[in-house]
């Protein structure tokens, strides 16, 4: 308990410190790097991981069942290392799924929780916590240290990757932005924020292996679905539907490009 309180206090201090650093116009990136190092053993993401683990094992929903029999692709009940192989094609649903959509699927089939209910809060904020963020934090933390290895052997996966790549380069909206506008070249930045080149292995590995992440500026743990949604908002696109085919195609593209990296999330980000 003391540890939890400590973490919560640290989270608050981080948010304040980050704002102060920005206000002073300092090099935010290097400041945050210092926090990252100082907090290597105390990432506030652990609060979400702990809550997610408890929720995973708790009997919930109309069927009063836990998620412990959820099949994340490596057989019912296998959580360890499962995230490193997602997205993947699931024969039982006949589609490619990422972690978030697979968790919702298990909530429906095992616990009897309707989609309307499970999708009520997708992104947490003050006064409303998102269960999916905690569950995702727990499952991903169980892949820490596992080598990312997403396979395109299945033709559905191959197709999703090909479309994901097309979406990555798709320019649209009033600003003509594509994902590639900001993430298609080495050593670029927006204001002072470094931008990973996601078309290259090194950039994709560094970025993908560290999501989900505790976002200091938001005081929340965010998943890959959130990351993509907020990128498209800034691209001036309409609202990316959570768990939509395009979101999974793009995740497949990024995950496959990151193959070979050691998974290191949930991480800590600005």
């Amino acid at each position: 308990m003391y540890r939890r309180l400590c973490l919560a206090a640290v989270a608050g201090a981080l948010a304040i410190a980050a704002n102060a650093a920005q206000a002073q116009g300092n090099d935010t990136a290097s400041e945050i790097e210092k926090y990252r190092q100082a907090l290597a053993d105390g990432n506030p993401a652990e609060l979400w991981e702990a809550r997610g683990e408890a929720m995973w094992k708790e009997a919930r929903g109309p069927k009063k069942a836990s998620l412990e029999k959820c099949d994340l692709g490596m057989g019912p009940g296998v959580v360890k290392g499962a995230y490193a192989h997602l997205p993947r094609y699931f024969a039982d649903t006949g589609r490619v799924m990422d972690l978030e959509t697979r968790i919702f699927h298990c909530m429906g089939t095992l616990q009897g929780i309707s989609e309307a209910e499970s999708h009520k809060v997708l992104f947490g904020g003050p006064g409303h916590r998102a269960d999916i963020e905690a569950l995702t934090a727990y499952v991903t933390s169980e892949s820490k240290g596992t080598v990312i290895n997403v396979s395109l052997t299945d033709p559905h996966m191959k197709q999703m990757y090909a479309i994901g790549e097309k979406i990555f380069f798709y320019r649209g909206g009033p600003h003509d932005f594509a994902c590639a506008t900001c993430h298609g070249e080495d050593n670029k930045r927006i204001r002072l924020q470094d931008l990973p080149d996601l078309t290259k292995k090194a950039g994709a590995q560094k970025a993908y292996s560290t999501w989900p992440a505790y976002r200091v500026s938001q005081g929340e743990l965010r998943t890959m679905q959130w990351r993509l949604n907020d990128c498209f908002r800034q691209q001036r696109f309409p609202d990316l539907v959570y768990g939509s085919p395009a979101s999974i195609a793009l995740t497949t593209y990024l995950a496959y490009n990151a193959n070979g990296a050691v998974y290191d999330g949930p991480a800590l980000k600005r």
Binding site: I163, I167, Y170, F232, F237, P238, D239, L240, V241, S244, P245, A246, S247, A249
Partner: peptide, 9 residues
């Protein structure tokens, strides 16, 4: 796929 994956907001 894009058209089925976004909603106007």
């Amino acid at each position: 796929m894009l058209k089925s994956s976004f909603k106007g907001k």
